[in-house]
Nucleic acid binder design. Structure first.
Length: 480
RNA sequence: AGGGACGUAGGUUAGCUUGGUCAGACUGCCAGCCUCGGGCGCUGGAUGUCGUGGGUUCAAGUCCCAUCGUCCCUACCA
């Protein structure tokens, strides 16, 4: 009856409003009392936990260890690497007082922890035997957002992990950068079912203070790009000001080679945008807090008992396969209400069991991604459900992959570029490599270089702006 | 950062132009019934410092100022 408890706008009619409703009504997060901050609710946090545990496991198997850094960084430390400081200072929150007393060296709420981490690393590293040092930190970062805040995509505080590694050679550090980027790709494509393009950022777009930045970039349904994760090669840019050095095997004091990298809860924002539909969230099974919801259908107390009994049996069978299963046995809601409610929350598979099903020895199974209904006999419970979950995970990825492929458009003509960018998408175009041309394109079209793909084709066409022969091709898009 | 719109019950909102029974509706919530398979039906009940702070006035949800917050369209960062 009431549509107001559901999503009231269509995804392709008012994307921004749709997104906000999905976040709030799907109970992923809510607004905090301070602008730009959100509260993660259990349903949203549990998606983060899924991501966190699979990434954490992968990092540990690569030899990384977890640590924890404090949230306050003295200005004197934050400003040691000047480019880095200049890049972050507009969005730093400052702590100026403790109680009523003004602090001398004011304290930044960390916008990122390179400076703090490396001031510690310089104390810990003495010899080549101390390397590599590979520490990951699960924490939050704070960057002031004055306007245009958006849950998960743009908030003043966000959950993330930041990894900081130190190596004795340039080669080993660069290898680390690429290993991490590949790890990110796997997480995003295999867990979140979101296809990405791997590549490098331009000089203009790289992390401030890095030698270069690698990235995985995804496309959203509105044709805008979203950076999904970055892995930076810092070279010796930080080891020099922070005195991160070691005695090498030849007893020569050497500055170390460093990397840093991170992914944030922005991935959850991407997940919502990429897979969601007019009914709400659509979660890939690998990260869904609830993978299978069972809606029992009954009228009489006798039916209630037998239907719930069978539901529990099914639940236990599936739990033995390590599936996350929930029975919605609330008496106060009708089955129809529950169907809509769990669809809004994106549960990948729903099982309906009623008296008629019991009589026939089967259940009704409904896929969230394509709404297909089918009968499944009780004997085939585990294989049937496991197969369907696998199909949903794959199906979501394939659909997103096809969208990405369609939206990558080769453009060598600037007039066509301008018209295409209005439609949204990834424009694969020649570029001379000069920041001036990149800036010109940004100024004229609003698009920037999102990624210079590693496996990019060479168009050998002239740069869109200066007409010099392109050094490389880049993917241009408007971004979040 | 620039432009536009808007804050009235948990949610969606009427009322504001023309200050004076204007504090209403729907939904949700609570209790009880109900053959509840796509937001079911019926009966009863609770819920508002009209975002906040000033001001004008005999009188402010309504007019003025400020402030906080939200949304939409452009410009920058995970």
């Amino acid at each position: 009856m009431s549509k107001e408890i559901g999503i009231t706008v269509k995804k392709d009619e008012n994307f921004s409003e749709w997104y906000t409703q999905v976040v709030l009504k799907g109970q992923l997060a809510d607004y905090a009392p301070v602008k730009g901050l959100i509260v993660l609710r259990p349903y949203g946090y549990s998606i983060w936990e899924s991501l966190k545990s699979s990434l954490d496991e992968k990092l540990k198997s690569l030899g990384h260890e977890n640590g924890f850094l404090p949230v306050l960084i003295p200005q004197s430390l934050l400003s040691k690497e000047s480019d880095h400081f200049a890049g972050f200072t507009p969005e730093v929150f400052w702590v100026t007082h403790s109680g009523d007393t003004e602090v001398g060296d004011r304290l930044a709420l960390r916008p990122t922890s390179e400076t703090l981490a490396y001031s510690m690393y310089s104390k810990w590293i003495k010899s080549w035997r101390d390397l590599p040092l590979k520490i990951n930190f699960w924490n939050t970062a704070l960057r002031a957002e004055i306007k245009a805040t958006k849950p998960f995509l743009r908030t003043s505080e966000f959950l993330w992990q930041e990894g900081h590694t130190v190596h004795s050679s340039k080669e080993e550090a660069e290898e680390e950068v690429f290993t991490i980027l590949e790890t990110y790709r796997k997480i995003v494509e295999e867990e979140l079912a979101i296809p990405v393009i791997k590549g490098k950022k331009s000089e203009k777009e790289k992390f401030v203070g890095a030698v270069y930045t690698t990235t995985i970039e995804a496309i959203m349904p509105d044709g805008k790009a979203l950076q999904m994760g970055t892995s930076h090669f810092l070279g010796q840019n930080f080891s020099k000001p922070f005195d991160v050095k070691f005695l090498d095997k030849q007893n020569v004091e050497t500055f170390a080679w460093q990397t840093s990298w991170g992914v944030s809860w922005r991935l959850i924002g991407a997940l919502i945008m990429v897979h969601g539909d007019d009914k709400g969230l659509v979660l890939p099974p690998r990260v869904a807090p609830i993978q299978v919801v069972i809606v029992p259908i009954y009228y009489s107390p006798q039916d209630r008992e037998s239907v719930l009994g069978k539901s529990n049996v099914i639940k236990e069978i599936l739990q033995k396969k390590n599936l996350r299963v929930h029975i919605d046995s609330r008496d106060e809601f009708t089955p129809g209400y529950k169907f809509n409610n769990w669809e809004m929350k994106g549960v990948p598979v729903r099982i309906e069991i009623g008296p008629k099903d019991l009589a026939k020895g089967k259940m009704v199974v409904v896929r969230r991604d394509n709404q297909k209904k089918m009968d499944l006999s009780f004997e085939n419970t585990e294989t049937g459900i496991l197969d369907i979950l696998g199909e949903v995970q794959l199906g979501l990825f394939e659909r997103a992959k096809q969208f990405l492929t369609e939206k990558i458009i080769e453009v060598t003509d600037f007039e066509k570029f301008k018209s295409e960018i209005e439609k949204g998408g990834f424009l694969h175009s020649p570029w001379c490599g000069d920041t001036k041309c990149e800036e010109k394109i940004k100024e004229l079209t609003g698009a920037d270089i999102r990624v210079i793909p590693f496996d990019g084709k060479r168009s050998n066409a002239p740069c869109l702006i200066c007409k010099n022969l392109s050094k490389t091709d880049a993917i241009f898009a408007r971004g979040y």
